[in-house]
Design a protein around this nucleic acid. Structure first.
Lengths: 182, 182
DNA sequence: GTCTTCATGTAACGTGTTACATGATTGA
DNA sequence: TCAATCATGTAACACGTTACATGAAGAC
């Protein structure tokens, strides 16, 4: 269960409203903990209820009015506690691998074009990450926080690298099948 | 979703009871589509209801009695249809990456030992995969089905390879932090 | 005024997880 | 006969997804 901690992290980096959070998830935190605005609003409500964050005063809290949240000391403490928790890696659950395994029993059909499509998507994602690295981590920034954030980004980059090289192998394999699969 | 298709695939490879399926998920299909026995029983019920599989007759279907299922033609057709479906890769959702990003704002605490622990787990998983490769895919088997299943396994191996190399980088980085993180 | 976009939600549902329940079979 | 193990489930709940609803602000 990590969505609340993803939100706490984002809010500590910068107090935000629900929609701002949603956007930031779309182009940063969401790269390794994806979420939708519905989940975010639900979780913001719970975090506020639990006293870990609060809505900044000033504006009247009406529907349709922007509401900014900031992390309270209890929230920061909870995040520190969670960072120190130990948790086993979650078993893989990947539909593409499953499809190929299924293709072994019912035939590869149009698997080739699906592999090509995924290749393109992963290439694009890699390009996105590399653009972020160039923009946010120019040489020379080496405060601890920057080093850690960059480490996470490099995780994303290496993961896309894995996909690209495996997908290329897979595509070659599928196209070489007896009956031709594409 | 894909659990029903994972089950159909497993049942086409070999008709099984719920518990046998659970065991096979634990040491094969589950490596890329994990599941628990509760989910499997629930889904077997639905698949039977939908007419995609059926319980082999013979035994009285009492609680506590083994019940074997086999795939019906409709099930096989549904699996073939699904294999040909196109589906975007699911966005990453990884707690360890999130923890590191959170550590950038609240400090790395005992992150070093957690990274070491994950390293060991991934090394073990890689060893498991390599043992399976040596045992199930000795040189020379090259029927289409075998090639595809081996391809999936090599995906698992490459994925563990990604984790190992990134975790080593991460560990070096975390241990080099100003305040020392382990 | 109306349309679009910003912004915050509600509702319904499906999947996944955790804890527990029940019956059959086997060995001490 | 007792305990352990095999085998099949039920129940409750948390999390994630999809579709829709509502209000405010600015553009035209």
């Amino acid at each position: 269960m990590s969505l609340p901690h993803a939100i706490l992290t984002a809010l500590m980096e910068k107090p935000s409203s629900g929609l701002e959070l949603t956007r930031r998830f779309d182009k940063s935190i969401g790269y390794f903990w994806s979420s939708t605005h519905q989940q975010i609003y639900r979780e913001l409500g719970r975090l506020e209820e639990a006293g870990l964050i609060r809505a900044l005063p000033s504006e009247v809290p009406v529907r349709g009015q922007k509401k900014e949240y900031e992390v309270l000391p209890d929230g920061s403490a909870e995040l520190a506690r969670w960072v120190d928790e130990s948790q086993d890696p979650k078993p893989v659950r990947d539909a593409l691998l499953l499809r190929i395994r299924a293709a072994a029993v019912v035939g590869p059909q149009g698997l080739g074009s699906e592999l090509r499509r995924h290749l393109e998507l992963h290439r694009a994602q890699l390009a996105t990450y590399e653009a972020i690295e160039a923009k946010d981590f120019p040489a020379g920034r080496d405060a601890d926080a920057d080093r850690l954030r960059r480490l996470v980004l490099r995780g994303g980059i290496a993961l896309e690298g894995f996909w690209l090289s495996w997908l290329e192998e897979a595509l070659a394999e599928v196209e070489a099948l007896s009956g031709d699969g594409a």
